[in-house]
Every structure is written in C-alpha cells, then in structure tokens.
Amino acid sequence: MDAVEVEVSLRVDGRQRRLTLDTRTSLLDALRERLGVTGPKKGCDHGQCGACTILLDGRRVNSCLALAVAHDEAEITTVEGLADGDTLHPLQESFVRHDGFQCGYCTPGQICSAVGMLTEAEAGWPSAVSADLTAPVELTDAEISERMSGNLCRCGAYAGIVPAIAEVAR
C-alpha cells in the first residue's frame, strides 16, 4: 500500500495551516511531526492515555485517534494556544501552583482535558458519579476525578491535579 496524499486545512491555535499529508496521518502526528506543534504528547497512540488531548471544535478529543484527513477546516486548540501572550491560562497557572505534575508529559493533555471538562460540566453533562442526571453539575472532587480519569498520569500527580482544577472550577 503506497501513501495517498491529500491536502488539508487546519486552524491551529488561531493560525490557519495548510498541508499535504498522507491519509494515514493522525491529527496528533500532523500536529507534532508536520506542523511542529509538539505541545500535544503521544503516550500510547491508541486512545488509552489522554496525553494527546486537544480541543477539536471546542470539544476534548484524543488526537491520536483522529485521522487528520477527516478534519479538514477544523478549529483546533492545543495546550500551546491556551495562554494569552505571557499570561498563563488560569488552569495552567493553577497546575504550576498546586504542582499538578512531575515530568509534565501528561500535563498538556490534562490541561486541555480540564478545559473541555469544565465546558461539559457548565453545559450540565452528567458523569458516572453524578447522583442526579438532570441537575446542574457541582464539581466536587469526586466529579473532577471521575471526569479526568481518561487522562493517565504515571507520575501519580492526581493529588495535585484535582485541587488545581477545583480551584479554577469553583
């Protein structure tokens, strides 16, 4: 099977990017290997760790599971696009203050996932631990832990991640 190439246009962290790529290329590899946007990380390439989490048209997704060719004209926000110039995003700032990481390799995924999670909670999406599926979501520690469990951290920084998110959420 030889490579089939197509042209794709992506808006990444506010910048329009146009590239010709192999149809087998994941969104994650398109960002990291083709566009030099290495903020999103590859931990497993199988949708099992969350290190590659980005915001795709506003929703959190595992970019290793998305084929770039299927997302022509998509609006993508990575961890590199969250800060406002030199001013860190409140979650970024909170992660530093609460030491919500050690090696930092899961961190871009954790932070993007948290951004997406806060939007979901705001919209009233329940989780597996929500007692009432229709009530407004109250982001308790248990809710945050549950909703963030798609993002693995081998350094075991969960005990810093939850308060880092809670402080911004409440």
């Binding site: 990291r32 290495t38 961890v79 590199e80 969250l82 992660f95 530093v96 030491d99 930092g104 871009p108």
Partner: peptide, 18 residues
C-alpha cells in the same frame, strides 16, 4: 514552584522526540 513548570504547562518544554 517548579522552575520548569511554565514550560511544561504551556507545552513548550522539549522532550527527546521534539
């Protein structure tokens, strides 16, 4: 606070493959 923290939370810290 971790001195490498800002680089890590903004995704600009470079790991080997990057």
């Amino acid at each position: 606070d971790r001195l490498d923290g800002p680089a890590k939370v903004t995704g600009t810290a470079r790991y080997a493959f990057e």
